[in-house]
């Protein structure tokens, strides 16, 4: 099994799962999706995007120039979606296990 996605990579893939986005839109989407927990730095964003692109998890999807500024769009690949799903499934099974045991813990406390 591959190494789990890092924190930044997880949120970038999550942001792109909502649709193709340019750099700053990814940053904003990651912040929104994480309820303000994550604030990606632009330098980190492009370092991680480059790695994700080499791994085939994201793809560049056109550029446009607005007010003399380059906006490069990225989109999730099928592999990227698969990878995000696998990671999410893993997280979900962890959450399920913890919740179920915590429920048991509360019940036991209640009985005592």
């Amino acid at each position: 099994m591959a190494q789990p996605l890092g924190e930044s990579a997880f949120w970038i893939l999550t942001a792109l799962a909502a649709g193709r986005r340019h750099g700053y839109a990814i940053v904003q989407e990651a912040t929104t999706a994480s309820d303000g927990e994550v604030r990606l730095k632009a330098t980190t964003l492009y370092a991680v995007l480059e790695r994700l692109e080499l791994d085939g998890l994201v793809q560049q999807d056109g550029e446009e120039v607005v007010d003399g500024r380059t906006r490069r769009y990225y989109r999730l690949t099928d592999d990227g979606a698969g990878r995000l799903r696998a990671d999410t499934d893993l997280l979900e099974s962890k959450v399920r296990a913890a919740r179920s045991n915590l429920a048991g813990f509360r019940a036991a406390k209640g009985l005592a």
């Binding site: 340019h22 750099g23 700053y24 904003q28 632009a42 330098t43 964003l45 550029e63 500024r69 906006r71």
Partner: peptide, 17 residues
């Protein structure tokens, strides 16, 4: 060459915002 302009664009978008 590969990412410079895109990075600058994102940084300026953020500064603007």
């Amino acid at each position: 060459t590969a990412h410079g302009d895109a990075l600058i664009g994102t940084l300026l978008d953020e500064a603007d915002d």
